[in-house]
């Protein structure tokens, strides 16, 4: 009796496998970070770009203020593209822009800012890329919105006009 049902069970199993593969075809096979999870900001210390003073992340961020942390580098092409948007955003008084200069040479970074303007009120230096990892970033540029010592939103890749509108609405 068992052998009579066996083929049907087998076929059923294969149909299920087929459906799995079929569904799997539409999945992305690259790393897609979870961007909507609120996380505490990481604990780390970094040097300030201008003064070379070491600061601690817990003291650096004021829980009452809204921050936008932008990871950038002078050698990163998309960073150049989003820079104008950041300049625009820096005019807004309700948000403080913080730069995290990723694996850059100080003079290159200075030239970059002289050329395109400096939207950041403070810049942290990340010479080895380790600070970016503390933030859970895996490339440049990435942007984080921080409020009450929590990362409330995370943008991977360059910002665009649409995202800027979104950020502005979040500010209100």
């Amino acid at each position: 009796m068992r052998s009579k049902f066996f083929p049907f069970i087998l076929i059923l199993i294969f149909i299920i496998i087929f459906l799995f593969f079929y569904k799997g075809l539409s999945n992305y096979n690259i790393y897609t970070p979870n961007i909507n999870v609120e996380k505490d900001i990481p604990l780390f210390s970094a040097n300030l770009f201008e003064s070379n003073v070491e600061v601690n992340s817990k003291e650096f961020f004021d829980p009452k203020k809204l921050y936008l942390l932008n990871i950038w580098s002078s050698w990163c092409v998309p960073c150049r593209d989003e820079h104008a948007l950041l300049m625009d955003l820096s005019k807004n008084k309700n948000i403080t822009l913080i730069g995290l200069n990723y694996k850059d040479r100080p003079d290159n970074a200075k030239n970059f800012l002289n050329e395109l303007g400096n939207p950041y009120s403070q810049i942290l230096v990340d010479e080895t890329g380790t600070k970016a990892i503390e933030w859970g970033a895996f490339g440049v540029p990435e942007t984080f919105l921080i409020y009450k010592n929590k990362v409330i939103k995370k943008y991977i890749g360059p910002l665009n006009q649409q995202l800027l509108v979104e950020i502005k609405s979040l500010i209100k």
Binding site: T128, G129, T130
Partner: peptide
């Protein structure tokens, strides 16, 4: 890659 190199440093630290 840049990411991997940084991660190696992080692990070492």
């Amino acid at each position: 890659s840049e990411f991997a190199n940084s991660l190696k440093v992080v692990v070492e630290e």
